Simulated assay, not measured.
Amino acid sequence: MKKLILSLLFILPLAVMGHNLPVANGKITYSEVVSAEGLTQEQLYQRLREFFTVQFKSADDVIQMDTKDKVIGKAWQDIIVDDGKVQEKRKLWYTVKLEMKEGRYRIELSDFHMQRYCLPAYGPCEPQTRLFPAEQILSPQNQVNKKGKPSVGYASFEREIEKAATALMANIKEAAAQSSDW
């Protein structure tokens, strides 16, 4: 009985760890409506469309949908995941959805996935480079390692998502605030 109680006391705080990231409909989703008083929908569209061109190497490769009031793109960036023994560079994939209306716009970051780079020493590349949904990686069963101790890699991945999303949202807001009148 003591073991059961001790196990629950150890596991319950770990189950809360994954709740540091915002979740909507079971998916990690960052969403914010930003006021942009005095800016028309067209001005916001121009600034936010330019954001994709500046932020990513090839806007054409990123943008999946482009209308006068909405731009949606799928992109990735490098992150470093630290499991306590090894730091490994991986790709963090996500979807950026920007919607514009007169005097405001909405940012939504969702569909976070992690992908390893191919390391030939570990065998064939295809199984190594599959995309894994962040929600699967951050599920409660992955919060502890095989020895029952807190997973350092889990916490590292969660921090990297938060860091990437926060920086991306700040970059979007900065782009929307900049006037292109030179």
Rank of each mutant, 00 (worst) to 15 (best):
2 K>W: 11
2 K>I: 14
8 L>D: 03
9 L>T: 08
9 L>V: 13
10 F>I: 09
11 I>P: 10
11 I>S: 10
11 I>M: 13
13 P>W: 08
13 P>E: 04
15 A>V: 15
16 V>R: 08
16 V>L: 13
18 G>F: 02
18 G>N: 08
19 H>K: 10
20 N>E: 13
22 P>Q: 03
23 V>N: 09
24 A>S: 14
25 N>W: 04
28 I>A: 00
29 T>H: 00
31 S>Q: 15
32 E>N: 07
34 V>M: 03
36 A>H: 05
38 G>F: 07
39 L>H: 09
39 L>D: 11
40 T>M: 03
42 E>K: 15
43 Q>V: 06
46 Q>T: 12
46 Q>G: 05
47 R>V: 06
49 R>D: 14
52 F>P: 00
55 Q>M: 03
56 F>P: 03
57 K>T: 12
61 D>C: 02
61 D>N: 13
63 I>N: 04
64 Q>V: 12
65 M>N: 13
67 T>D: 07
68 K>T: 15
68 K>W: 08
70 K>W: 04
72 I>M: 11
74 K>F: 07
77 Q>S: 13
78 D>F: 06
79 I>C: 02
81 V>Q: 00
82 D>W: 02
83 D>R: 05
84 G>T: 03
85 K>V: 14
86 V>T: 14
90 R>W: 04
94 Y>V: 01
95 T>W: 02
98 L>A: 04
99 E>L: 07
101 K>P: 10
101 K>D: 15
102 E>Q: 14
102 E>L: 05
102 E>M: 08
106 R>F: 04
107 I>Y: 01
109 L>E: 05
109 L>F: 02
111 D>K: 05
111 D>L: 02
112 F>V: 07
112 F>N: 02
113 H>C: 07
114 M>V: 14
116 R>V: 06
117 Y>V: 01
117 Y>Q: 01
120 P>E: 03
125 C>W: 06
126 E>I: 08
127 P>D: 06
129 T>E: 07
129 T>P: 04
130 R>F: 09
136 Q>N: 14
141 Q>F: 14
145 N>L: 03
146 K>I: 12
149 K>W: 09
151 S>G: 02
153 G>L: 05
156 S>T: 03
157 F>H: 01
157 F>M: 11
160 E>Q: 14
161 I>D: 00
165 A>W: 00
166 T>R: 08
167 A>K: 10
169 M>E: 10
169 M>A: 11
170 A>N: 05
173 K>H: 05
176 A>H: 05
180 S>D: 13
